[in-house]
């Protein structure tokens, strides 16, 4: 926190002492002014971007866990899915953004999809790994009692995978923000990314910084929520993280 405050002070001093022009680097005060400027209608932009980020996060989490479970459940599904997923993951997903917009048009949904596409892969991998990284002797114990596969899954494999899934979701929380903003850069009429893009022509750099502050607030809030949920849902994993 002290470091953070110090940085802001240095920033303010540097801007005023070196007389840096506002369109290059606005001072913290100028950013604050833009941030609380009543004329800027933040709410609709904030709302759209938040919706996209949350949508991307939920989609990436849901699809990621589902694919991870499928891979861990059936070796046949794994051999069919894994090469395809690896291929998808090697694509620079940001580059696919224009195609999504071409196919799906403007709006919240394509931006959600871009965010989800960027963020789902670690969830798949961590889910699959967490489900299979079970002590073989634990599984012997399950076999001794002729426990059905689903029961081993529900009582042993899935709780075992939970910390893995939650730590992947922390990465996904960040990727979802990237995806939403990139989508808005490519084409949008609303959203914080849209605000940033429009400042390019208006040279209103303080406004761009104001939007950045909002983006990081949303990003931090989501990340914080995931961390809090992880602590609550898997307290036993705390020591290992």
């Amino acid at each position: 926190m002290a470091l953070f405050v110090g940085l802001i002070v240095v920033w303010q001093l540097a801007v005023s002492l070196l007389n840096i022009r506002e369109y290059l680097l606005p001072s913290p005060m100028a950013v604050l002014r833009a941030f609380i400027e009543p004329e800027t209608q933040w709410w609709p932009h904030l709302w759209v971007t938040t919706l996209e980020i949350i949508g991307a996060f939920v989609l990436a989490g849901g699809v990621g866990v589902a694919l991870g479970v499928a891979i861990a459940w059936s070796p046949r599904l794994a051999s069919a899915l894994v090469p395809f997923l690896v291929l998808v993951n090697t694509l620079p997903k940001v580059a696919v953004a224009p195609l999504f917009l071409l196919w799906l048009g403007y709006g919240i949904v394509p931006n959600m999809l871009i965010g989800a596409l960027i963020g789902f892969f670690p969830v798949v991998i961590n889910t699959a790994v967490g489900l299979s990284q079970v002590d073989p002797e634990m599984l012997d114990l399950g076999r001794v009692f002729s426990a059905p596969k689903w029961k081993i899954f529900a009582k042993i494999r899935l709780p075992n995978a939970l910390p893995y899934i939650l730590s992947a979701l922390k990465i996904t929380a960040t990727s979802a923000v990237v995806g939403a903003i990139v989508g808005e850069f490519v084409a949008s009429q609303k959203g914080l990314g849209y605000v940033i893009i429009t400042t390019q022509s208006s040279m209103n750099t303080p406004l761009a910084f104001g939007a950045l502050v909002w983006v990081s607030i949303v990003g931090l809030a989501l990340y914080g929520a995931v961390v809090a949920i992880a602590r609550w849902a898997a307290p036993w994993a705390e020591a290992t993280q």
Binding site: D135, L141, F145, K151
Partner: peptide, 24 residues
Amino acid sequence: FQAPILLKWRSILDNVLLPAELAG
């Protein structure tokens, strides 16, 4: 076994009860 292999998310009591659950 040599290692206790207890489920780390379950209480000691629930770990001891595991065979009953697994055996249905």
